[in-house]
Design a protein around this nucleic acid. Structure first.
Lengths: 116, 116
DNA sequence: AATACACATGAACAGTCATTCATATGTATG
DNA sequence: CATACATATGAATGACTGTTCATGTGTATT
């Protein structure tokens, strides 16, 4: 009833009110992956079209090696999937959901940028 | 008309089809901030209740200094706002939107975790 | 005004990470 | 089977980052 006591109770049980370590690790790993400009550009590009490693490298002005390394990271997090066709490997988003998450963060970024 | 040409055209103009550097920088800065477990826990905690620095430190088993440093990062990105009351500073989420973004990424994380 | 409390800030250190260069694997072509 | 092409992998390195320790700033209390 007393707001003070409620507040104390919340603080005492904070660790039970937020996600446990393993789940939190999976979540933050994804955010960390999205937090690098190179990987973000790759994901945006794949949001436009399914593309091969070479096309990504050419279109985004990146080293083939760099693109491949970043795709490995994104693949391990199941954010993209690659399918071989001949000697090329075509990558695509594993889930269109990613795009909408980017759009939401973009909205937040532009709005708080404008407000400053 | 020719799908091959469309594809080449996309690759050639990829840089115009994705966000420019400055906007992309603001977006990835936010993702990077969300990509650290300590900051994520702080944001989750603030999603439960408005809390002071000391309460966050106590409830999350973190150093006061550490909490303050991370809050500085979150404040600069306008993800949280702090208001002084006496000698305490109470922090709250700048935007409830953040929570729903976490929920979406959490959904993605758990689903691809289950699928493995 | 002096002391105690809450928070912020700065420097420093250890660990992490993005990128590059070199090389390996895999696949088609002649 | 040899060569060329596309992608993957490994090692090395320079830069960045999270945390700690020490200290500074701001605010209340006596």
């Amino acid at each position: 009833m007393n707001p003070e006591l409620d507040h104390e109770a919340i603080v005492a049980k904070l660790n039970t009110l937020i996600p446990p370590e393993d789940e939190l690790g999976r979540i933050t790993a994804i955010f960390k992956a999205l937090g690098d400009p190179t990987r973000a550009r790759i994901l945006y590009a794949l949001g436009v079209s399914k593309l091969s490693v070479g096309e990504l490298a050419a279109g985004l002005d990146l080293t083939q090696s760099n693109v491949s390394h970043q795709l490995t990271v994104l693949r391990e997090l199941k954010l993209v999937v690659g399918t071989r066709s001949g000697r090329n490997v075509h990558y695509q988003l594993a889930d269109k959901h990613i795009i909408s998450i980017f759009q939401q963060v973009a909205a937040h970024a532009e709005e708080s940028n404008q407000a400053e």
